[in-house]
Design a protein around this nucleic acid. Structure first.
Lengths: 155, 155
DNA sequence: CTAGTTGCAAAGAGTTTGCATGGCG
DNA sequence: CGCCATGCAAACTCTTTGCAACTAG
């Protein structure tokens, strides 16, 4: 993988380490900047944006556009080994990449990986000639917590 | 369905008619405003936003946040009869309501109904206690046409 | 020394809100 | 007349760019 001179600065490494430490959970740029500010190592928003951009382009992170309570914003997550750059090349073969579940009530974003779905991109490609990009697909609905809360106290 | 007094103004009706005429294709607010300007019946951006907001809330339109070449923006599409409000009531029973496939290249919106997916909401509910709202879920990717175009002339 | 990085400030783009005007019942 | 729709302007949020100071090799 191409690695330009001087790329591994403190900030660059810190950002990569941080999103990697989240194990696939999503963060916004603001949350990342906030994290580093709170640990006494502030990183400018601009810098965070630029590094995430690099990481996304090199396949080490993924970017989603998501709707939140107050408008929309980008969310980033670490791209784990098996669903990185090379997924693009073999997506039509049925990548195992996970889907996402977003709770419309509480906003929780969950990972969804189950047997039915792991074969879905392949099936859809075979039956509909449509190549699904799992990483950009989000299922909307209600999570278990909100469902049980509703059951106790109907809306 | 509740219909407040004075709701059917010229602008309101024009916007609904327009997105309905697109047969499920998506448009941005700017495109809608541009359309009405070009036909000699300009509607202010604010008004477009407000009417779309109403339409989304009443279930006659759906809003997606999408990534474009120059940043992200909301896109709207007409909500057809069969994937409207009543899906909510029986989603947890494993509704047969179809999903949508949206081509990121050409914007085509396809209906997706296959055996794997018809049982998906039920499976996900059983395994993850998450109730999927099929009508709000869109799979992103590339349609057959764009795939074959890419094959001929790689990007 | 040189090339690349950093981050403030300012510019952009899309969306929402405040408010005065105007149309329709 | 009274209520609500309309749309301009301004506010807001998130993101990107310009630029001068700085850092690492």
């Amino acid at each position: 993988m191409k690695r330009p001179t001087g790329y591994n600065t403190k900030q660059s490494q810190a950002i990569l380490d941080y999103i990697a430490s989240l194990g696939g959970s999503h963060v916004t740029v603001g949350q990342i900047a906030g994290h580093f500010e709170s640990i006494g190592f502030p990183i400018g928003l601009t810098t965070v944006y630029r590094h995430l951009d690099k990481l996304v382009r090199s396949g080490r992170a993924r970017r989603y556009i998501m709707e939140g309570v107050s408008g929309s914003c980008y969310q980033y997550e670490y791209a784990e080994e098996d669903i990185g750059v090379d997924v693009h090349a073999r997506a039509h073969e049925g990548s195992a990449g996970h889907f996402h579940l977003k709770c419309e009530d509480c906003g929780a974003l969950l990972h969804l990986q189950c047997e039915v779905l792991s074969g879905l991109p392949k099936r859809v490609y075979e039956e509909h000639s449509f190549r699904i990009d799992a990483s950009k697909t989000v299922f909307y609905g209600k999570c278990a917590d909100c469902l049980s809360r509703d059951a106790e106290r109907p809306p």
